[in-house]
Amino acid sequence: MSSKTIQGPAVTLIGCGFVADLYMRSLQSVPHVQVVGAFDIDPDRAEAFCSHWGVTRFTAVEDLFATLPRDGVVLNLTNPDAHFDVNRACLQAGFHTYSEKPLAMQMDQARELHRLAAEKGLLLASAPCSVLGQAAQTLAYAVRNNIAGKPRLIYAELDDGFIPQAPVESWISESGAPWPFEDEFRVGCTLEHAGYYLSWLIAMFGTVRRVVAASGQAIPDKKGVADAAPDFSVATLFFETGPMVRLTCSIVAQHDHQIRVIGDNGVLQVKKAWANGAPVKFHKRFRIRRRLIDSPIGRRVSLPGPTHPMVGRWGAASMNFALGPVEMLEAIAERRPCRLSSDFALHLNEVTLAIQNAGDHAGAQDMTTRCDPMEPMTWAL
């Protein structure tokens, strides 16, 4: 197969593990995007994945680069420790690159990728892309339109329950890939999950100027993984513009994925970070005699028209993982800035690492990167 035979938007995958199945399931919701093929360093894993989804298996990454059109996008779905090397290889080969989170495990690596993309005039983005989804865009719409009044404080929770006691060994993807729990524990829940709400917040308010955080291990030994990363973190975020934010991540505390925007007139609330179609509700504040009450019954905030293709629930999530790659492809075709910019990815990476690496010192760290608020999706205006 050669790039000359490929018509229209195209992507190819590097990495055929657990998350790759979620991308393939999501890409089925956008049939105009062609999946050129996939590569994995494990030939058996690659064969199982490509056979299941009916896509071309590349036996060498050079063949993948030789086949994808220059206006296509490479999806880097490898393990986090490999993200930097794979992202750099894709950029050096001259391809727009979409990386699973994090962009890189170290900030000097992330800066190198950011610089390389700029030098070559390439798009570079990182997951998560739920910021482009209906729930995030509706919440941002409600904030822009002052539905709850001026936002003063935001509480964001990304607690996943007592995962070390869960039957993680039996979590298998559609094509038969096991959930990489050892890798997940070593990378840590902050690097894996904080971006889901950090991306929403940075999209709404722009640059985080300072992070005050602490992190640590509530459970030192998880499934025999002794070198695990922190399983709990809490951070206070100070934005250049916008409200104060408290963000927590854990794989110990009771499952809680809600975000609450507390404003002068009431509270905006989303209860499910991992559901693109989760309702956004406004709980109005009012007085009854001498009591001040936030209404326990929320009024749903809705956008006027259709948004994006939804995908069914699989496991813990109901997210369209294709929203990010599609945004990149459309930006390339329309010759416009990508909402998931390299500045956005770099700033998200820095804030996340500041929280992850805070340890038990609870110190303040000023951010060195910047990011403007994100342009809303056209259907969310």
Rank of each mutant, 00 (worst) to 15 (best):
R209C: 13
M204H: 04
S173W: 02
M204Q: 08
K150T: 08
S170V: 03
E192Y: 14
I172V: 11
E174F: 12
Q137N: 04
R144T: 15
P178R: 07
Y155N: 02
P151D: 12
A156Q: 01
A218I: 14
P164K: 14
P164I: 13
S126E: 14
V168E: 05
D159F: 01
S126Y: 11
V131G: 02
D221W: 11
C189K: 00
A140L: 08
D221G: 12
S175G: 09
C129P: 05
L158G: 02
N146C: 14
E182H: 14
A142H: 03
W171D: 13
A136V: 07
Q134W: 06
A213E: 08
A213M: 06
A214Q: 13
S199G: 07
L191M: 09
I172L: 14
A218C: 09
L139H: 07
T190F: 03
N145V: 06
P164C: 07
K223A: 10
S173N: 02
F185L: 08
L201R: 00
P167E: 05
L201M: 02
A194Q: 10
T190G: 05
W179P: 02
S130G: 08
H193P: 15
V168K: 08
G195A: 03
A166M: 07
I163N: 04
P180T: 11
I154H: 04
G206A: 06
R210K: 11
G216Q: 10
K223F: 11
I219D: 14
L191R: 05
Q165A: 13
I219G: 11
G195R: 01
L191P: 01
S170M: 06
A214C: 12
E174R: 09
L191I: 02
I154A: 06
F181M: 07
I202S: 04
W200I: 07
A148N: 02
K150H: 10
N146S: 13
T138V: 05
G188N: 05
R186D: 12
P180M: 13
E157W: 03
P164V: 08
K222R: 09
S130P: 09
E182T: 11
E182Y: 11
P164A: 14
E184I: 15
T138D: 07
